[in-house]
Simulated assay, not measured.
Amino acid sequence: MQNEINQGNRTTAFVRGVAAAVVLSAIIAPAFAAQKQSAPATAQAASSAGALLPAGVVARVNGVSIAQTDVDAAVRQSGKPDSPALRAAMKNELIARELFRQAAQKQHYDTHADVKASLEQAKTMLMMQAYLRDAVKPVPVTDADVKAKYDAIVASLGQNEYKPSAIVVKDAATAQTVLEQLKKKGADFSQLAKQYSQAPSAVQGGSLNWVSFKTPITEGQTQGWPQPLAEALVKLPQGAVSSTPVQVGDAFWILRVDQMRPTQIPTFDQSKDQLRKELEQVAVAKATAQVVTDLVKSAHIEQ
């Protein structure tokens, strides 16, 4: 984005959205076709004038140049295969965009309050992004860091892995109601999860991702699960539901083991790219937090 601003590129943002480009093409193509049919002499004159355009310029709109580099960028951002037809369409869109800009400027839309406010917001956002790009300096992630992360994860895995579902409620009475419906009435677990659960997984019927724990369960080796939940899960056979709710903080969990299998461990080569990405995200988050901490320390903040 910053490169576009530095180069004075006023056009490429207009065609970033593929859907927007499709809609715009549907509007512009007939307009250009109609212009050629209704004014062939003018179109021919414009075509002849095109041969006199400076190098790197593909069109002029009331004296304003449309550069070849603008068309190149629009083609790339469209995400479509490069072709003469696509380039012609992109050029027409850029011409239309310039016509829109000139018409808006002629009617002084640049002075409208909402336009000025949006410009100021965009300027602020770009300024902050540029600052953070220079100020946030994450520690580089090395190959050794990635391998160490992989080894730590493998070391924390148990012999078996579980595909659980959970219903999470806020009080013991509701948890007991859910358990009674499961045990006495044979209610469907996923439907009860959608009805009662307060967890994000409710929309999936309580379904959670595969997880594995080294047993016996030890603190810090539970893949981010609260230890009481991990301990309850590994005691359940496949298809079983926890007989009593498991309280974690002020929430009550009812667990079911949907599937159980021997733990499947991907190779390092299969995992390293994703692990590196995760470690880099953590490094960026830590570096950003440090920037915020330093700014807060030197600021006078009243709340």
Rank of each mutant, 00 (worst) to 15 (best):
K123W: 02
H300D: 03
V178T: 10
I27H: 11
D82C: 09
S83V: 05
N160T: 09
P228K: 03
Q247D: 04
K36T: 06
M260F: 02
S47T: 11
T222H: 12
A59V: 12
P228Y: 01
Q7M: 08
A173D: 15
G63P: 06
E219N: 12
L53T: 06
E231N: 14
S118A: 15
M90Y: 03
P226F: 01
D72E: 14
K137W: 07
F32Y: 06
A230E: 12
V178I: 11
L52I: 02
A251N: 10
L86A: 10
D171T: 04
R76W: 01
I301T: 02
S243V: 11
K214A: 05
S298G: 04
Y109H: 14
I301C: 05
A73T: 12
A19K: 10
V291F: 11
I95W: 09
A289P: 00
A232S: 02
P245R: 04
A49E: 15
I66F: 12
E180G: 09
V257N: 07
K272C: 08
F100Y: 13
M128G: 00
V211H: 02
V234H: 06
A74P: 00
M127T: 11
Q181F: 05
R261T: 04
G8T: 07
Q221T: 08
A31H: 07
A173R: 15
V291Q: 06
P54T: 04
N6R: 10
T293V: 05
Q290L: 14
A152D: 14
I217F: 09
P84F: 13
A148I: 06
Q107L: 09
A13Y: 00
A285S: 07
S201P: 05
Q35C: 02
Q77W: 13
K272D: 09
A104S: 13
D72S: 15
D273K: 00
Q102F: 04
P140G: 13
Q105T: 10
E93V: 08
F14S: 03
A73E: 15
P226G: 08
Q290R: 14
D70A: 10
K272G: 03
A49Y: 15
G186D: 06
T293D: 03
Y131N: 00
G56T: 05
N9A: 05
Q221K: 14
S242R: 03
D258K: 04
K123F: 02
A287T: 07
Q44D: 15
P30L: 01
F189V: 04
K137N: 07
V168D: 08
Q129I: 05
K91G: 14
L255F: 04
I217N: 14
G206A: 11
Q204I: 06
R256W: 02
T267S: 15
T12K: 01
V136D: 01
P216V: 02
A122Q: 04
P138M: 04
V136T: 07
R261H: 11
A148D: 12
P266Q: 01
E120C: 06
N6V: 07
N6C: 03
